[in-house]
Amino acid sequence: MDTATVETQPPRVRGEGERPPLPPLPPPPVVDLGFLKEVVEATAGVSRLEMCIQCGTCGGSCPSAADMDHTPRQLFAMVRAGLRDEVLRSNTPWFCVSCYHCVVRCPQGVHITDIMYTLKSMAIRAGYYKDATAPDFAKTFVYYVENYGRSFELGLATRFYLRHHPLRVPGIAPLGLDMLVKGRIDLTPRRIKHMDQLKAILARAAELEAAQ
């Protein structure tokens, strides 16, 4: 009975005849996907960054998300929107601890950690970062690898701490001394035998990368 009454009533249209016709829609904004493409191409392997569906699983899985300027999800939206400067100035890639929690949980299989590495190297090349601590740590580490073929903790720590955390030196020095007493720190770096070979490889790789 109820259904019959519904059918007999004419359909109600709200506000019919009261409103003037809508103006035509503006043309859709042109989004420049150039930066997205650049990031994808600079990442080794298949990054799948274009596949991001903005679900936020990455940020929810991230142990250092609370300290990041943008969560990984936000950062990827910014990459897609072409906000090059904002992305490269964000501290997000530098706060990535490479734990790969997001990578194994991402429903789209985006290689998030590798994209963070790409963004770090792009930021270093562009000279874009608010805080030089993290890039300098990476660069100091690389200095020892490029000159000795091995990492050298004492040199790395000394150079890095004096430059970036001079106030922490008195606090950290006893710790270093403890490590030294227990035989866990080398006083001099170890050099590999064929350093010239490694240097030739790295020089050639740097040339190839610059040519890209």
């Binding site: 600079a42 770090k120 190297s121 270093i124 660069k139 580490f141 690898v145 073929g149 990492s151 790789a205």
Partner: peptide, 19 residues
Amino acid sequence: NCCGATEYIAVSLLPAYSL
């Protein structure tokens, strides 16, 4: 030689993979 840890790869990609 060193694998570059999580640092080398953040500075430059191709040299890091070659290392």
